[in-house]
Structures are given as C-alpha cells and as structure tokens.
C-alpha cells in the first residue's frame, strides 16, 4: 500500500498562508489505513488548525471531509461542494490523490498536508516497511522474492557489498534503526529454495527507462477501455 506521513504543523501553516476558509480533505483508502490521512486524521488536523487560529486571534473557518478515494474522479464529485466553498484545500491523500484533487478542481489552491513516502508493507500494527519502488522491471523472480532495488541501500544487483555484517547493512535508517542486508536475506532464501546458483549469475544493468527515469509513465489497457 501507499504510505504517507503528516507534514509538520509549521509547514502546513505556511502552505495555508492567510487563507480564511480551509478544507482539510482526507482520503479513506491507503492513507487512512496507515493512520495518516483518513477522515479521523483530517478531523484532528482541522481541530488543531482551529485551536491555533483561536490562540493566535485569527478568524478562520476550518472544515474537514474525506473522499473514499481522492485518486478517482467519481469520488471527488462527492466532495465538490465543500471544495468549492474553500479558499484552500489541505489534502491528506497520497501524492496521487492530492494531484487528482488539484486537477479536478483547478485552479483551486490545493496543498499537501502529508509527505507520501513509500510503497510499504504493514509488518505489524502501525509499522510499515518499504517493499517496492515501482521500478517497472521486476527481478525478484531471480532474488528469492526479495527486492534488492529497494531493500539494498545501494540497490546492488549482484550480491552483498563489503559492508554486510551479521545479516545487517552498514547503513542505518533515519532513526538509527538497523536495516537487514537484503543480499544476506536473498542468499538465505535462495539456499532454502535450493537455487544458490542464481546468486552467481550475472545480472546486467537495470533498465531504468522503465522507472521514473524514463519520464512520467502511462499505462493503457486497450482491451479494457470503454467502447
């Protein structure tokens, strides 16, 4: 699923500027599941903005709402009236939802209240781990179902670098948390599968033109397009 984290309040305030009528728009799909931008969180942010305005003696009107999915036109119709009434919309959806909203209601001012950060797997309640970068050329069939592009800090394609120690990466995460060495995991998985030889096959350079390096991607399913 797509995950996001809320921006710091100061940054949100800066984006809102001196606008008087603010709509906080949550999205009840991915960002709701990751407890960042669903209706509940939209209500919390709206409350915070009202508390701050009151505290600082500013007259603002803050409403909140949520679309079932901000990334689909149909669901945006359902919040159109509230958007129309606002001077600025603070979207708590992922980057896709924010842009859909901005495009649908252009030139309405739509601001991001979250930072979309990854395609993550919920490892346990309230913990997400990055598992995919949508590189457009999946090779995990050769790596025991473990993606080295996203799980190796250097996106190595041909085995562990010299910084792998005790199953851990030499790099630590932003919160100084330990990171598992993807290639140590891959090696163990390949051994368990009896496919060790895959470790030693040459993997040519990746085709990054299939990723965002190739420009914005577009997918069309002709057979599924409406007639």
């Amino acid at each position: 699923m797509i995950t996001a984290e809320r921006k710091p309040l100061d940054e949100i305030l800066e984006l809102v500027g001196d606008k008087k009528k603010i709509l906080v728009a949550g999205c009840d799909t991915c960002v709701a599941i990751c407890l960042t931008g669903g209706e509940k969180e939209a209500e919390i942010l709206a409350s915070e903005l009202r508390i701050l305005a009151e505290k600082d003696g500013r007259a603002v009107e803050v409403e909140h709402t949520a679309a079932i999915r901000q990334c689909e036109w149909e669901y945006l119709d359902m919040i159109a009236d509230k958007v129309a009434a606002a001077d600025v919309v603070l979207s708590m959806a992922c980057g896709i939802g924010i842009q859909s909203l901005a495009e649908k209601f252009a030139p309405k001012l739509v601001m991001p209240a979250v930072n979309t950060n990854m395609l993550g797997m919920p490892q346990e309640h309230a913990v997400w781990l990055e598992r995919c970068v949508a590189c457009g050329e999946c090779r995990i069939g050769l790596t025991g179902g473990i993606c080295p592009v996203v799980r190796c800090s250097k996106s190595l394609m041909n085995g562990p670098c010299g910084g792998s120690h005790d199953g851990l990466c030499e790099v630590t995460g932003p919160e100084k948390e330990e990171i598992e060495c993807a290639w140590a995991l891959i090696w163990e998985r390949l051994k368990a599968q009896g496919r060790e030889e895959l470790m030693f096959t040459d993997r040519p350079p990746k085709d990054w033109s299939k990723s965002s390096s190739g420009g914005p991607r577009k997918m069309v399913r002709e057979e599924a397009k409406p007639v």
Partner: peptide, 23 residues
C-alpha cells in the same frame, strides 16, 4: 560501489547506483 551517502558530508544527496560495481 562507494560508501553510502549517509556516511559523508552530504547525507541528503541522491545516490545514483545506476550500475553496481560488477556491472
């Protein structure tokens, strides 16, 4: 391959890693 950016003086840099050392 190169030491990871996080060890250096520009930890906010985008690591390229287009190829790995074997490539």
């Amino acid at each position: 391959t190169g030491d990871h950016m996080s060890f250096g003086n520009h930890p906010q840099a985008k690591g390229v890693h287009d190829l790995d050392a074997i490539n």
